[in-house]
Nucleic acid binder design. Structure first.
Lengths: 226, 226
DNA sequence: TTGCTCGATGACAATTCTGTGACATCTTGT
DNA sequence: ACAAGATGTCACAGAATTGTCATCGAGCAA
């Protein structure tokens, strides 16, 4: 679970933020002075910092600057009361990762927090095994495929395996022999014509009118582009 | 150098952005339709995307969503004309990394770009095997070639092989027989006229008006200069 | 058994790539 | 400058590759 530090001197604001973030499942810590906040940030113990600009002890700008000067890369979102652009830019140039201007909407702040935590390599996994390829979304774990309207798309076992192989090498070229070796095995192999036929079937399922995802590389093989 | 893609249909806006970003030292590419933009983004060739929300072809939201669905993590900054919060949140939840609301200040946008590029650690590693030769960039691994505008260039298998051989001996002189031996093999070999013909085809694709990259060494063979 | 699906194959069409000759143009040596 | 040889360039026919369809048989379930 992500740990968030709130550095904010206005009691009401701080409590509101804390409660909401805790409700969202974050672990929340607080500081109400700039210098205290800096000390905590420098411990490197947080995944994210919400930092007010107007603070007793030390301004948010200075906290930010000193944090970066100390080579601490903890993401920082600035909370500023003034809507002036100068503040924004200054903040970002000082090393902040984002800012919101008071009054801000909670939904927006939460969205921004999510974005930054995700980007920081956080722990938001996505639908992991549902991969979108052209027209369809495929799960290789459950051998299911769905079209744009979420209706199931029928795919045979071999079709899944071939698509899976193409997927795991997407962007790279795969020869017919590669496919035969991987999907059918070294011992028994049908004609390479068979591969072409499966490619046709896959194309019918995943290609959109505008985009062809399985590219023929003449004289070499095929290539899947996502 | 960071490569930035601008997806924007308003000419004036696009030109303004492009010029300013180029002035800042970024390599800028453009697209004026949502679907075209998506195609380019999916190539994974960019460090950052500036994406307008209102676009012909496909909305910025959809482009964003599809990009993330395809597991491409290229950072995206949304450009939105409407100041509505819903847009912002929606955009961020769809996987955008940031947004600015038109009209935005250039300084702010530049600051945000810097922040994101800094955070992304700033390099597209796909360029690893992308070699630039004159007009085009070539990947011998994936048998792809792109021109200056990042549009794919068609190249046949033999063309790739010959260019590959020239590349691996760039700066040195290569005789026609060398090429025939390497590309066609010792046993079967066409006329040496055939080589000339392929050289012509390659030249048409890679030479720029100012620079000839495949040099004829009269009486001996050819030489590739990068 | 019957009816179904899937894998495999071959035939043919469609497409793309190669190789060649003819002729224009250039380079070199005289 | 001239001739001889080398190279540039183009269009086209044939070769090679790939797309697509119809079909057949094996395996499986009802």
């Amino acid at each position: 679970m992500s740990k968030i530090l709130i550095v904010e001197d206005e009691q009401a604001m701080m409590i509101g933020l804390r409660d909401n973030l805790e409700f969202e499942g974050y672990e929340v810590h607080t500081a109400d002075r700039g210098d205290d906040g800096l000390k905590k940030i420098l411990s490197g113990n947080y995944n994210l910092v919400l930092l007010d600009v107007m603070l007793p002890g030390m301004s948010g700008f200075d906290v930010c600057k000193k944090t970066r000067a100390a080579d601490i890369e903890t993401p920082i979102i600035l909370l500023t009361a003034r809507g002036e652009e100068l503040d924004k830019v200054l903040g970002l140039e000082l090393g902040a990762d984002d800012y919101v201007t008071k009054p801000f909407s909670l939904r927006e702040l939460l969205a921004r927090i999510k974005v930054i935590l995700r980007r920081a390599g956080g722990s938001v996994q996505k639908d992991a095994d549902l991969i979108t390829i052209g027209n369809i979304r495929v799960s290789f774990e459950s051998y299911e495929a769905f079209n744009a309207s979420d209706e199931p798309v029928k795919m045979s076992h071999k079709e899944f395996e071939i698509l899976h192989y193409l997927c795991s090498h997407h962007g790279k070229i795969v020869t017919r022999d590669d496919i035969l070796d991987q999907v059918w095995g070294m011992d028994y192999q049908p004609t390479s014509r068979t591969v072409d036929n499966f490619i046709v079937r896959l194309r019918n399922k995943i290609d959109t009118p505008e985009n062809q995802h399985i590219i023929t590389v003449h004289g070499v093989g095929y290539k899947l582009v996502l």
